[in-house]
Design a protein around this nucleic acid. Sequence first.
DNA 1: GAGCGTCATCAAACCGGTTTAATATCTAAG
DNA 2: CTTAGATATTAAACCGGTTTGATGACGCTC
Lengths: 365, 365
Amino acid sequence: MVRDQGKAGGSAGGSRQAMPPPSRRGGGSRPTIGDVAALAQVSKATVSFVINDRPGVSPQARQRVLDAIDQLGWQPNAGARALSTKRSQTLGLVMRRPPELLSTDPFFPQFVAGIETGLAPLGYALVLQVVPDEETERQAYERLARDGRVDGVFLTDLRTDDPRPALVTELGIDALIVGPPQHGGQVPALGVDDGSGVRRAVSHLRSLGHRWIGHVCGAAGFVHTEARCDAWRGALADADLPEIPPVAADFTGAAGARATHQLLDLDRPPTAIVYANDLMAIAGITAATSRGLRVPEDLSVVGFDDIPLADCIAPPLTTVRQDVLTWGRAAAQALVSLTEGGEFHAAELPPVEFVVRASTAPPRS
Amino acid sequence: MVRDQGKAGGSAGGSRQAMPPPSRRGGGSRPTIGDVAALAQVSKATVSFVINDRPGVSPQARQRVLDAIDQLGWQPNAGARALSTKRSQTLGLVMRRPPELLSTDPFFPQFVAGIETGLAPLGYALVLQVVPDEETERQAYERLARDGRVDGVFLTDLRTDDPRPALVTELGIDALIVGPPQHGGQVPALGVDDGSGVRRAVSHLRSLGHRWIGHVCGAAGFVHTEARCDAWRGALADADLPEIPPVAADFTGAAGARATHQLLDLDRPPTAIVYANDLMAIAGITAATSRGLRVPEDLSVVGFDDIPLADCIAPPLTTVRQDVLTWGRAAAQALVSLTEGGEFHAAELPPVEFVVRASTAPPRS
DNA sequence: GAGCGTCATCAAACCGGTTTAATATCTAAG
DNA sequence: CTTAGATATTAAACCGGTTTGATGACGCTC
């Protein structure tokens, strides 16, 4: 019953007991599966079987292995495991945006947090890249794909005619579009229907009595901008309301203010404006106020996002809230199941919420 | 001169030329260093030497290798390389924060973007974790450290008596504190002196004629909250101004509003308030306005962060701007040089900028 | 008690790189 | 014409896991 203690004492096992003073470099070199095997008096294979819940290990051996793992505080090396299994248990998120503009976007932090809450329980990690332009973006995806760092990637902020769906297909990497499905449908997509937010906004304003509603939309070229614009047109048509050409802006406050002035300069200015995000809406309120208009008495304003500030200003902003956290979590789970060979199930996302506050009111009669 | 074409044709080389239709799975299995070596008619070692700029490779061989790499579109597998070199070329960032609060923080996205701009040129990646509480936070660091996924980690939002400096020392992992240096000084730190922002704010208000200034500080227990509070006290003392006890809030708009009312309810309310972030400052403006006060005529307000909204509201907010992007880039470079064995050089960070807008004015006489 | 299936176990190969140590080739010096 | 020294090249070991195929022990049945 007594096994040879020293047989597999190999490499690190010996140096371990002659541990250097624990101060200088913490644990020094970390234990390996070989150390665990030696301590538990089994082979590396057995240790591997135990931690991967494979059958064919006696209860006694399993217990010795678990004790050894516990005693050494061992954890399998991610890189080594990835090398064997060809799965890195890591997903990639590439954000293409001028770095200084990233902080204007309430979506990013929420979405990342959501991804994390979905990924953590599955033992997955997230690698993040922020790139400034299309060229570096392509390189980023290529690198991530080719050096095997990630099992799959998220595609966010899709543009009309975005090259990325084709790119990931060509690279042979799993991907998930965050947003409405793309034309070709090559790459699976998961997004909330934010068009319904716009429709809710229009119907809210209409029920208040507004008949002449303007729209400040987001940066041109983005799929979600087009989607919201289309939804807006559709909603107006459905409600049998006349259409003011939407004014394009780029999600910044300055652009929001500019667009607002443009709408208010019309011969017949709108009595209400729907903005593509809260930042522009708030800038719009400020712009309108500076012209002597009162919100909501003279102009109703609807935002989009429900940023934390939305109800800290005067008047509190009526807006559309998306549950981005849940969206992120669902996206993470969907992409993991995709990379693990499972089919893609489009998870049901909670619908957008329409938050009525005080920036909307019946129009002046 | 003609070498045996087939000698090292090994594993993947054969299957490569019988490439399956390129449609189904993109590139299929990616080429390895062996494929490159076979194509270039050299050994794996030579390929390795070439890509790592090691001497001892003839110009001809080097060229053949480069051609082969180009032709195959090969890139070294990150995991395999990490396994050999014991360096993952990856850094970790763990954010401990209730996920739904992450979006209130203008620091996070900017800092991440800054890290990225520092890391990308060095070929490093960033893995991100968002954790809800202290327990999962500890586990996150332990996992990252023990499974060898990262070479080093950033420590942000340090708390007074934060366990993490000790933890990373114990785990033997390189780390960089993002913020003011910690008491023990075990772990290197890199932070802007945001106390100077508070001092600038006080001196600005004093020069306008304010003598009775309130402070709404951030969530208790954070090192940077304490630092700013101390700076505030110091600035008042230096300016020979009386001190109103600072009111603690938690960075949210609601707390900012509450704190503002608390200060304005004093027997002798302050004529100016300095807030620990813009969100609370804006909520404070709204709160003051709702009491019939006018900003800045009856109350001057100073924020902190300079969020994009700061100059989209009325009145535009006087605030303190930190160059978080540069800070993030410097932090990335510092941590990389730390993990690569180089010494730690505390980079010079640009000082905070004091942005005077319209929310401050001389007090009513 | 021979034959057979089941189960636990482990040595060895493998993943795709890096690194070492030995070998082959070429020059220059003696 | 040797021989030493420099240079180019590679086979093999290694990193730390996973996986396969072989082996041995055990309990059954007939």
